[in-house]
């Protein structure tokens, strides 16, 4: 089956078995190895990508469901200023994110910061509850989200002033 979709800003087309999981297509056909299908159950979150701007688990998405959709992987998201703000927030909090957890942390945190200016305890707790990376239970991780929110708000305010 021929499937066309937008991948990290490019229009791509692939001839593949329709049942194949998106996570495998991204890694094996496009070399986007920042997407890690860790569990194939939608539990670990390491295969998270954005589909039309919303985070989804690419291990639970067959190829036929991607037709004409816009997919952003962690490789496509990292150069954006949204990603850089979040990374800087974690860095300032002293919480260094290893490469394999980037997709499972950056996408949910970005979704949160898009809807909330000041994340409360409950919002942060929800991110932590579903994050399968040990240090996400640390204070530095919580602090990282709060600092990232400050960077995001600062940029939004600057944008409004202009």
């Amino acid at each position: 089956m021929r499937i066309s979709f937008h991948l990290n800003g490019r229009h791509v087309s692939i001839n593949t078995i329709p049942e194949r999981r998106l996570a495998d297509i991204l890694r094996e056909d496009y070399g986007l190895v920042g997407t890690h299908p860790g569990c194939y159950k939608g539990t670990c979150g390491f295969c998270t990508v954005l589909m039309d701007g919303n985070p989804i688990y690419s291990c639970l998405l067959p190829a036929f469901a991607v037709r004409e959709k816009t997919i952003t992987t962690i490789e496509g998201f990292l150069p954006t200023r949204e990603a850089q703000e979040i990374l800087k927030g974690f860095q300032e909090a002293g919480c260094l994110l290893p490469e394999y957890v980037l997709a499972s942390v950056l996408f949910p945190v970005n979704s949160l910061l898009e809807t909330t200016d000041i994340p409360d305890e409950e919002d942060i707790e929800e991110i932590i509850r579903y994050c399968h990376w040990g240090p996400s239970r640390s204070m530095a991780f919580r602090e990282g989200i709060i600092i990232a929110a400050k960077f995001r708000n600062r940029r939004k305010r600057r944008g409004k002033r202009k």
């Binding site: 939608g42 979150g45 985070p55 688990y57 949910p108």
Partner: peptide, 9 residues
């Protein structure tokens, strides 16, 4: 039910 990424699907 699960994390937001799952709820989006």
């Amino acid at each position: 039910i699960g994390p937001p990424a799952l709820l989006n699907q």
